[in-house]
Structures are given as C-alpha cells and as structure tokens.
Design a protein around this nucleic acid. Structure first.
Lengths: 130, 130
DNA sequence: ATATATGCAAAGCTTTTGCCCTTTC
DNA sequence: GAAAGGGCAAAAGCTTTGCATATAT
C-alpha cells in the first residue's frame, strides 16, 4: 500500500461524483503534485481487483451494434466479451417506477446480463480430482 | 439510402453476433472492397438515429469509478453524462433467475437507470406559451 | 534484498472529423 | 445542380505499456 494508492482511494471515497480517472487524477494531484495519470489508472485497476472500488461498467471497450430492433435483452460473457440475445419476455417491466433519484426525470433503464458463455466454460473447466 | 448504407444494414441484420464497427467493416468490405471504416461509423450513427439499428450501450466513453462498495444502483444523465446514486432498495432482486440464455452460466446483471438530471432539465426548459 | 510501484513518455485502439470528390434525388 | 454521402487520412481521446528509478516489505 503506497502513499499514492492510499491517496487515490481516499480521494475517491471523499467524493460522490463517480469521477473518471482523469478527474480523480486532478484531485489527487492537489495532494501529490508529481503523481502521474498512469499511476492513477494502474491503482484504480488494483483497487477494483481488490474490491475496494468499483468500476462503473461500460460493458467493455468497443461498442457493439444490433440490427434486431425488437425489444430484447443481452447477456455478455465476462470472459471473452461476446454478446448474445436473451430469450424470453422482458424481465423487469415494473422496475423503473420504483427508482428514487431526486431531481432526475427518469427516462428508462439499461439492463444487461452477465455470465460465462459455453465455450469459455469449457475452456476453464478444471481437471477434476478422481 | 446509398449502396453502402444498405449493405451495412444487410450485413448487420445477417448476423446475430452483435458485431463491433470494425467487425462489420470487414464483413461489408467483402462486398464493397473500397468502403472505409469512417463510412461504417457514420452510417451506424445514422442507422441508430433512424431506429434501424441499436448501439449496445457502453454508457458513455470514459469509465467512472466509485469508492462506495455497498450495493446500490446508478442513474446516468443522458444529456451531460453525470452519474448519481439511486437511493432505495435494490429493485430487481428477483429478476436474474428468469433469464433464458442457453449455454451460459449466468453470474449476474448490470442495471443502470437513465434520466435527465436537474440542471440539464433546467437548461432545456422551453419558454412556455402563456 | 527483492519484489513491487512510480513517473514519464510513447504507443495502442477505437472513434471522430476535415477535405475533396462522387453519387443521389 | 444542390444536397447528402463516401474515401482517405489525420486527429482526438482514453487507456495501456515499456523502461529506468524509487519505494515498500
């Protein structure tokens, strides 16, 4: 646990604005003028891996596109990133009205399932003690 | 409706893999060897605006981070991109089990509300006929 | 001491944009 | 023939990485 990592975590916890890496970098730099953006990125990775922070998901780097305009949901493989359609009815139709977000006009929600696809499950099967 | 746009849409509809722009570009290039990646991006934008395709959301370009590890949900302003916490209990606890995603081991879901935040609502207020 | 982390800068990747030419209506 | 769109290449923006140095345990 280095000074930099501690300050990054402190500053992240000190705000409720869900900052981007760059915003956090500027805050941290007020206290550690020599810190670099790369360090912030590296430490955010570590913190997320250690469950001390959360990355607000963006579902992987690249955008994907879908020509099927019927209402349906997606499931994304957390291992390989592939995206498949989820069969069946919309699961959460009654969900949105319950939101308590003061000041917001709530227009909808985005829902994406996560899982491990068939081929990634096969690839990660452990040899079993017999 | 140009040849390029039609082919892009045809190829997008021909697959169920939810391709990235680059994957689609390579498919389309088999039929239109001179097409450029920029054209694919521009047309995907148009198709999405025209509701002929969907962008599988990534919630805006940059990642955001959150130091609050308690289970809670977020709402994102679709105008300015800011992210706030949603107060109240988890809305969709009973949702995940209903998913029908053959082959997948479903590990969870990601849910993010969308809306227009207070200051963006103020900024877009229209002068009202009296 | 030795592994780990930092700072800095460069590279990587996806996406957007400018410019000029071509196609569409 | 005016308006929209395309091709190409450069730019932009976020994130990752290589490397030499410094810090932590």
């Amino acid at each position: 646990m280095t000074v930099q990592r501690r300050v990054i975590l402190e500053e992240l916890r000190a705000v409720t604005t869900h900052p981007t890496a760059d915003e956090l970098f500027h805050r941290v730099r007020d206290r550690l003028p020599n810190i670099s953006l790369g360090t912030v990125y590296r430490n955010l990775d570590v913190l997320v891996r250690n469950r001390q922070a959360r990355r607000i998901e963006n579902g992987g780097g690249q955008c994907r596109f879908d020509g099927d305009m019927d209402r349906h949901y997606h499931i994304r493989c957390v291992v390989c990133g592939r995206v498949d359609d989820v069969a069946g009815p919309a699961p959460g139709g009654a969900m949105a009205p319950h939101v308590d977000a003061p000041g917001y006009e709530v227009t909808g929600f985005r829902l994406e399932y996560e899982g491990i696809c068939a081929s990634c499950r096969k690839a990660t099967e452990r040899p079993r003690a017999h």
